[in-house]
Design a protein around this nucleic acid. Structure first.
Lengths: 288, 288
DNA sequence: TTGTAGGCGTTATCAT
DNA sequence: ATGATAACGCCTACAA
């Protein structure tokens, strides 16, 4: 069998793809890596994983390593702690999930996905719908917020009481919990009858907050999450959530790299649709 | 900067380590991979990840790929669906977590870890302690079972009522849930006052079963899990669990590979200690 | 001490 | 068509 090192020295192909993610412990990213590995394997490619821990300096270092390794392309989920990302030209990089303004990339359509979830709640009869948003400086977080506002504006059409109720938070469990506490700490007739959380982990934290306040789910509060991680189906009750098309994202990223095109549509991101995964945390609102 | 392909052709070192795991979606394995990546990075090594999906044929294929890639070593979590594992000699492989009888390897000390957890329950006053075991053909599952039996025998010393209550199950959430239902479906004075589950996912499934049966945790039932995955601290109430030393396992595996020794202690596995992570699912038993 | 040649395994190209 | 050869970049070993 041929020696890949020799081939890659002679020709210009290493059949190696690098993937840089902020944190492999995050189930969203581990599923992304796994899907990328499968997609790459289908083309005879292997994957080198690296973690940036959301640290821009580490990220730059990893890009350098992969470059000198002569990988054929890099799948990059940029660190949050972003600054100017200097891309080594000549090496195709596809940015995934956390799109950077001005760059092209591939991601779920967060905005329409959230809208889907909120509209699900609206259809059930909810009007006072709270929203736990992500960090202000995160592009996907802002897209999700827009989806919420889109849906609320539509629901508002002709009705007064669909004012937005927003709590800003990080994406993790603890932040979701305190955001939930904040949204729910008011009299019953002012309190939201449903909450949409920008991540499943937030949603689960919010479930905890509701539980601690003695608010039964879904009887007195409906909750919808976002992401569709395996964890969502392990809660009690099972979380209703908006599932991101992780496999499709990974497959598209690999396809772009192997087609040697720098980007899908030249600076225009490719957005893939989400779908609702119904759990047990949503029902019609009880009359006050 | 040097070209790794050239170096690896000239010398015999690729500074690449392969890691083969059954499923990256399993939080235990994703943490293992992340830890391995960090440990390897400290030595200037990079990691190629591959997934076997617990399929022996795929596993063999991945080993072949890594061999021809000239990786300097392989970290292998063997697929469950094991058969004879033919190791390409000359290429150091370290078996991790799921030790194979006859091979050396590195893993948590499951037996003493479980004993630790069960003894925690005994100290709280529990005697009717149920155990959700893993699949019969899994080596770690059997080690965990032994740890339970060890602890129960000790607790039994001079007391009659510490008869083992065992339910066999797979390691996942659903199996833990049905095992929990099985153990709890009896009159209160016969029902266990505490359950030790062989995995956190089982434990969380079991919490769900208890919840569905109207059994409050920890008031009427204490639960302890095993693994220490992040998920354990996101349940309501937070799961008490026995944490595996994942980072240490990964670091040791990398160290073994880089030291070019085939194994720690020649056929004798290296076992690393676990520790208890206290949550909110344990308390002293209520009098019947 | 400093410098240079050879060979690792491929594959592309060129010559027979 | 088939086979020989050079070049990819680095490292080691040997020579000046």
């Amino acid at each position: 069998m041929p020696d890949p090192s020799a081939r890659s020295m002679r020709g210009k192909v290493s059949r190696l793809i690098g993937i840089i993610i902020p944190d492999l412990t995050n189930p969203f990213f581990s599923e992304l890596v796994q899907s990328a590995e499968q997609a790459a394997a289908r083309h005879g490619y292997n994957i080198i994983v690296m973690t940036s821990f959301d640290h821009a300096a580490k990220e730059a270092d990893r890009i350098g390593q992969l470059t000198s390794r002569k990988v054929d392309g890099i799948i990059l989920v940029p660190s949050n702690d972003f600054h100017t990302l200097k891309l080594p030209k000549g090496l195709p990089i596809v940015i995934v999930d956390r799109l950077l303004p001005g760059y092209s990339g591939i991601a779920a359509d967060h905005r329409s996905g959230v809208r889907l979830g909120v509209e699900h709640l609206v259809k059930l009869g909810h009007r006072r719908i709270g929203f736990i948003s992500g960090p202000k400086d995160s592009v996907p977080a802002n897209d999700r917020l827009k989806g919420y506002l889109d849906a609320m504006e539509l629901a508002c059409d002709g009705e007064q009481n669909a004012a937005p109720l927003i709590a800003e938070a990080a994406f993790d469990y603890e932040s979701g919990r305190s955001a939930g506490n904040y949204l729910l700490a008011r009299a019953r007739h002012e309190r939201p009858t449903a909450i949409f959380a920008s991540s499943d982990q937030q949603a689960i934290g919010c479930m905890r907050a509701a539980h601690d306040l003695g608010i039964p789910i879904p009887a007195a509060l409906s909750i919808v999450g976002f992401d569709g991680i395996p964890l969502a189906s392990m809660t009690t009750p099972r979380l209703t959530t908006v599932k991101q098309p992780i496999q499709e994202i990974a497959a598209a990223a690999v396809a772009v790299l192997l087609s040697k095109q720098d980007a899908p549509g030249l600076g225009k991101p490719l957005l893939l649709g989400c779908e609702i995964s119904e759990g047990e945390t949503t029902s019609s609102p009880q009359p006050d």
